[in-house]
Design a protein around this nucleic acid. Structure first.
Length: 425
RNA sequence: GUGCCUGUAGCUCAAUGGUGGAGCGCCUCACUGUGGAUGAGGAGGCCGUGGGUUCGACCCCCAUCAGGCACCCCA
């Protein structure tokens, strides 16, 4: 093991078992996205640094992006998020694309962070957006898409919840508390910290952020008011409409959800694991100025993003990932000796024509070794074509799970295999 | 960027400063037309790397690299 070049820090290797899990998750994402009528799209993984400088936070671009200069001296970056790309793509064809548009995507992203549990430097992210409309129905649809996904993975409303809030409502409430506009971005952080600090620490942090004692008390009361949504016409409408999607159980109002991003303007939402770690699974909201930020017209939209790393951990911990995912071979044809090789290849061909996932042992070897190989690959059936079988136009079909073995005429082979195979391939 | 922990066989891990072990896995054989079991044998290591302390270092010290966890941040 001396000199194997190691993998890049924060990247993951997807061996077949891991790839099967990813495939399974991505298939659910695709299924849910398309069932709601969204179209798949994709942008480049490389973008000019300028694209992010326009809008994304300083920290994201300067500290957490892979930035480098190309041989032609352009400053490029491996995309840390998709939204600016989406905004650019929409702005470039703003008069051609039928609006509102419903687009979804899943692809790789990179952020230069210190890897730890639930966080890698290279990850996949599901993005889905509805652009060009501003209704509460649109907000409800996106939240419903998210909830439907969670439901399809098998997670229950006891295990995961989508918390919804509204930026305008919070702004209004902050005004009532006479919190100055200038410090509101900081106050959003204070809100965000509520569940992460002890009450004493949180109070100190809140005071340091510019609030007086009365405001802190008012804020605390606000954030524990589960009925606050009734003050927002948008949210009242939202919660009325969301009932029609059949996933109401997954959705709740929560005044503590604010989202870190500056560009959210209305509805914001975030899905959390309810169990021990209460990890954030996905997040999104309504934005009004994304497209205009990159030089297009003002187009309102709503969308969310979900990374693949945390959701996989949540699903794993919840035991929701099915055991048998990989499309493993169903049949292995053995090779008795050089003289039977051609016959074995023909048998394999017949099986493939019949639709079975079939491999052939790649060389003549002891039967025991061949069976052991099949067993280690978890292949349930073996077909044996030895000199005896070949002389009589027969073939032996062996069930490696039950050790049962039947010798049949070659035309009856497929029937015999069907009898042995578990009902679901 | 900051802190804590860990680097020993393919994997999981032991080893009081005195010649490096186990379990699992792997290979061979018992078994030249039949796998998981059993038994017997075998291969496999510059103890992450570089310095230092010591008569002597896997062990102690320093540095460095890598990994894990947490903080920061979370678009």
């Amino acid at each position: 093991m001396a000199d194997i070049v190691r993998s890049v820090k924060g990247t993951r290797d997807f061996y077949p078992d891991g790839m099967a899990v990813r495939r399974w998750m991505f298939d659910i994402i695709r299924d849910v996205s398309t069932r709601f009528g969204y179209q798949e799209y994709e942008g480049p993984c490389l973008e000019f640094l300028d694209l992010y400088a326009a809008k994304s936070g300083e920290e994201l671009v300067k500290e957490q992006s892979f930035v480098f200069s190309s041989p032609g001296d352009d400053m490029l970056t491996l995309r840390p998020e998709l939204t600016p790309t989406l905004a650019r793509m929409v702005a470039q064809k703003q008069y051609e694309i039928p609006l509102p548009l419903r687009w979804w995507s899943i692809g790789p992203f990179w952020r230069y962070e210190n890897p730890q549990r639930g966080r890698t430097r290279e990850f996949y992210q599901w993005n889905i957006d509805l652009v060009g409309t501003e209704t509460a129905a649109a907000d409800a649809e996106l939240v419903a898409v998210a909830a439907t996904f969670l439901k399809e993975t098998g997670l229950s409303p006891d295990q995961v919840q989508i918390y919804v809030n509204n930026r305008r409502l919070m702004d209004q409430a902050f005004s009532t508390l006479k919190i100055a506009k200038e410090i509101r971005p900081q106050i959003f952080k204070v809100v965000d910290k509520l569940d992460k600090l002890s009450e004493k620490e949180w109070r100190t942090f809140a005071m340091e952020s510019g609030l007086d004692e009365i405001q802190v008390d008012g804020l605390l009361e606000l954030l524990n008011n589960g009925e606050l949504w009734r003050d927002s016409e948008e949210l009242v409408q939202f919660f009325e409409l969301i009932k029609t999607f059949g996933v109401e159980d997954y959705i709740a109002y929560n005044p503590k959800v604010i989202r870190g991003l500056d560009y959210y303007t209305g509805t914001v939402f975030e899905a959390f694991e309810l169990g021990g770690q209460s990890r954030a699974i996905l997040g999104g909201g309504r934005y009004d100025n994304l497209v205009s930020d990159v030089g297009g017209m003002r187009l309102p939209g709503v969308g969310f993003a979900m990374g693949d790393v945390v959701i996989e951990l949540v699903l794993q911990d919840a035991g929701m990932i099915p055991d048998r995912l990989e499309s493993k071979p169903q049949v292995m044809v053995t090779v008795f000796n050089e003289n039977t090789l051609t016959g074995s290849l023909q048998i394999a061909h017949i099986l493939r024509e019949a639709g079975y996932r079939t491999v052939i042992y790649p060389e003549a070897d002891k039967m025991g070794k061949q069976f052991k190989y099949a067993d280690r690959l978890d292949i349930p059936l073996a077909v044996i074509l030895g000199p005896d079988e070949m002389a009589n136009g027969k073939v032996a079909v062996k069930n490696l799970k039950t050790r049962e073995q039947v010798t049949v005429n070659q035309p009856a082979m497929v029937d015999q295999i069907q009898k042995f195979l578990p009902s679901t391939p």
